[in-house]
Each structure stands twice: as structure tokens, then as C-alpha cells.
Simulated scan of single mutants.
Amino acid sequence: MRRRSFPYLLYLVLSEADCLEKNYLHVAEQAIIGGVDIIQLREKDLTAKEYIAKAQRLKEITDRYAIPLIINDNLEVAKKIGAFGIHVGNNDVPPTHIRKEWKSCQSLGYSIEFIEQLQSKETEAADCLGISPVFHTPTKKDTVTTWGIEGIAALRKLTDKPLIAIGGMNAANAEAALKAGADCIAVVSAICAAADPQKAAYELKNILLRNL
């Protein structure tokens, strides 16, 4: 078995909108209790001030449970709240810039949308790679490549960096993604839209643990 360099199995990506009628802080806490290992806050339409306020409230919860908090695509917010790390896409702040501007960043994630990115200095600067999306999902509309399980396997052969499978991931396909070479499964709707986020996280986590 390949040595795991990424200690997180179940990765929750959430925004207030993703949680539908539920409070995003409640969803996050219930997901942590259920087994989520790491959380990313993704808010695209807030001012920096609003994003910081929302992230600080979430960080109070993640800190209480010693869960790393990742900020999506906002270096100012990530630095201001002392987040564990940041995740960016191909059209966001470049990882090389983040390395220069935020020396204390503990986890720098970078989304891989096409295979040529693997040869870039931006990928080299990243700690982990988001395979985005594995399957089509309504939460991400500006996609370049839909990788599928076969795409995970192909990328696994080309890089030793930890791979985070995201996009349409759920209890039905999590096992296949791990077997193809993903180190971690990232979910949005599978937990955020669930009637019982704690139960959804628990069931997902147990699927992943059975397939280590």
C-alpha cells in the first residue's frame, strides 16, 4: 500500500448556500462529530469583511475540535483569521504567489482541471491537488475537465502529491475513488444537503476507513 502523506480522509467543503435552510455552523459541527477531518469554507460572493466574519465564526468551531480550516480562494481572509491553509483553482491567486506572501501556510491546495497543469510551477508549489471535478456537479459550473474515476487513476500515475477527489462525490462512489488512488474524498451536497449531516458524515467516513 502506498504510504499516506495526507492525514485527512473526509473533507467537507461548505458555504452557507450549500447548507440550504440549515445553519452552516450547525452543519459544520455535526459533520465534525460524524467524522469529517478537515473543512473548507467556500464563499464566492461576500466582501472581504463579510467573509472574515463568517470564517472567524466557523474557526471557533473547528478550533474547538482541532479540525483544520481551509479558506477557498481568498488569501486576505486566510491570513487574517490564521487559517490552516488555502485552496485555489487555476484562475485564482497562484500558489507560487501564496508561498511568497504567506509563509506560515500549512496546507496549500491547488485544483487540477487539465492534465498539463501537472508540469507547472504552480503544481510544484502546492501541497495537495484537488481533482476537480470527478463527476459533474451543480455546485461547480465553470469546469474544464470531468475526470471520472479513470482520471483519478491516470493522475495517480503521474504525481506523488496527495489527491483530493471532489465533484459529485458521495457514498456510492467514494470507495472507487480511493481505490483509483485518491487520498481524500471532498464532499459538498452529500453532507451539506443531507437531512442529518452527522449521520451522512459518519456513513461516508466508515466507507473510507474500510477501504484504507
Rank of each mutant, 00 (worst) to 15 (best):
K49A: 10
K49M: 12
K49R: 15
K49T: 11
K49G: 08
E50W: 07
E50R: 05
E50G: 12
Y51D: 10
Y51L: 07
Y51E: 07
I52V: 15
I52Y: 00
I52M: 07
I52K: 05
I52H: 00
I52D: 00
I52P: 01
I52A: 00
A53F: 13
A53D: 15
A53V: 09
A53I: 13
A53Y: 11
A53W: 07
K54N: 04
K54A: 12
K54M: 12
K54G: 06
A55H: 00
A55L: 02
A55P: 01
A55S: 11
A55Q: 09
A55N: 04
Q56V: 04
Q56Y: 10
Q56F: 07
R57L: 15
R57I: 02
R57E: 14
R57Y: 00
L58Q: 04
K59E: 12
K59W: 01
K59R: 12
K59V: 04
E60C: 13
E60Y: 09
E60M: 14
E60V: 13
E60L: 12
I61E: 02
I61S: 05
I61M: 08
I61K: 03
T62R: 11
T62N: 03
T62S: 09
T62A: 00
T62P: 08
T62G: 03
T62W: 02
T62V: 08
D63N: 15
D63K: 15
D63Q: 14
D63I: 08
D63P: 02
R64T: 13
R64F: 15
R64C: 13
R64K: 15
R64N: 14
R64M: 12
A66R: 15
A66I: 11
A66Y: 14
A66E: 15
I67A: 08
I67S: 04
I67L: 10
I67V: 15
P68E: 00
P68I: 08
L69I: 01
L69C: 05
L69G: 05
L69N: 04
L69W: 06
L69K: 01
I70S: 03
I70L: 08
I70W: 06
I71E: 01
I71V: 14
I71H: 06
I71F: 11
I71R: 07
N72E: 09
N72H: 11
N72Y: 10
N72D: 15
N72I: 10
N72W: 02
D73C: 01
D73M: 02
D73Y: 01
N74H: 13
N74G: 10
L75Q: 08
L75G: 05
E76A: 14
E76I: 12
V77L: 00
V77D: 04
V77R: 05
V77A: 10
V77W: 07
A78F: 04
A78N: 01
A78M: 04
A78C: 07
A78T: 01
A78H: 06
A78V: 06
A78L: 04
K79Y: 02
K79G: 05
